[in-house]
Design a protein around this nucleic acid. Structure first.
Lengths: 215, 215
DNA sequence: TGGCGATTGTTTATTTTGTAACAATAGTAA
DNA sequence: TTACTATTGTTACAAAATAAACAATCGCCA
């Protein structure tokens, strides 16, 4: 068994996920081999970066006909995917929460959304896109029962500040936070913040910069 | 007029947006001054990073009572905000598109969502959360008419591949892409990709890594 | 008023990330 | 076969981002 490198850069992990997505699309189209510069072009990056990423995870093809799409997909999966299932809970079943569950249900992924949580009595007790919606009061209980280890925060920001404690108590290991409220969680918990306002303000800033450069 | 530094790191821009959000919240609560380490703590980063970010944009306070919240908000705004309005269009008015518009309408931001585009005849011609929904066929026309320079892509991935050309033709300057399909746009256009699957796979990967580290 | 502690602004080092250069070799075609 | 091209894997370099170390100075209190 080849030793899997353990210190893979964060950015490389992101790109591996993106590569795999693209490769799966190619695989569906019957493409069996792909050159590094073709894969790179599809992502707007250089071929060197693709090859370097693959080197970092210990993948090599030594043929000059391009990478075998299926083999590469499996290799990336062996890096990214966990053997034990990752169960995901969604907190906040508004538009954003529903967008995420709907999106995931349509895919065949190792990651599974197994429950949603909300405080709206009209939603609690129902199924949305095949996912049961529980009341936030049941959070810890259901997390434990369903083996949830990751949560997506898609609630309004004002609710988010009250979620630190239940998330810690329930033993959640990873959080994908779409609210604008920074969380206050211990280091052992993986947190990724993607506030949509920040993302847009960032785009707007660089658009502004580009325009000023042109003048 | 103090010269505004023009080469601010991308990560600093992100953090500035986050600082401002937090500062606005503090301002509402009547907090007038804030120490660098307090602001840092709210974001799970170090005080050094906060001070360095502020240094990079040329902000200094020289008092030791902490930063004046209101003054700092205005200073950050002078960096981030454009004088000419940034008008945003949303492509794809599914759950994600609606989540974004709803979210933005409730805030008082310089960025304004002024139109949405879709191909669903049930949505076209209606108003959703105060935003008019046009058919994608009208895209270029409406972009020009409404002065839209940024778009949010929240359509299904399979549609996204057909959007490169209209986006270029309409003269869009910035794209926030939530689809899994990488776009093929020239360098002059600012593109930020945030595929939700990738974000979740990243969190899942580092959760897995943490667990393996503990064993 | 004078010194102590706390906070800031700046410089310097370390780590991370991205880019470029180069050597090795599988495929190709005469 | 043999030279050539294209593609790969690796090493070395450059840039960006983060963290640490340090010097300067304001506020506080005796």
């Amino acid at each position: 068994m080849s030793n899997i490198p353990s210190n893979i850069p964060e950015k490389t992990i992101e790109r591996l996920s993106e590569y795999r997505r693209t490769l799966l699309r190619c695989h569906k189209q019957g493409i069996t081999h792909i050159f590094s510069h073709v894969l790179a072009g599809m992502h707007g990056i250089t071929a060197v970066q693709v090859r370097r990423d693959l080197m970092l995870i210990g993948f090599s093809s030594d043929t000059k006909k391009g990478y075998d799409v299926k083999v590469l997909i499996d290799f990336i999966s062996s890096i990214l995917d966990s053997e034990s299932p990752m169960n995901i809970g969604v907190i906040g079943m508004g538009h954003l929460g529903q967008a995420i569950t709907k999106y995931f249900n349509s895919k065949d992924l190792k990651l599974k959304i197994t429950a949603a949580f909300d405080i709206d009595q009209n939603k609690v007790g129902t199924m949305i896109d095949g996912i049961p919606v529980f009341h936030m009061d049941e959070f810890e209980e259901r997390v434990s029962e369903l083996g949830i280890n990751i949560v997506v925060l898609s609630s309004p920001a004002r609710v988010a500040s009250e979620l630190d404690v239940p998330i810690i108590n329930a033993g959640i290991k990873g959080v994908l936070n779409f609210t604008s409220k920074p969380l206050n969680l211990p280091h052992g918990i993986v947190v990724e913040n993607y506030d949509i306002t920040t993302l847009l303000e960032k785009v707007a800033y660089f658009v502004k910069e580009n325009e000023e450069k042109d003048i």
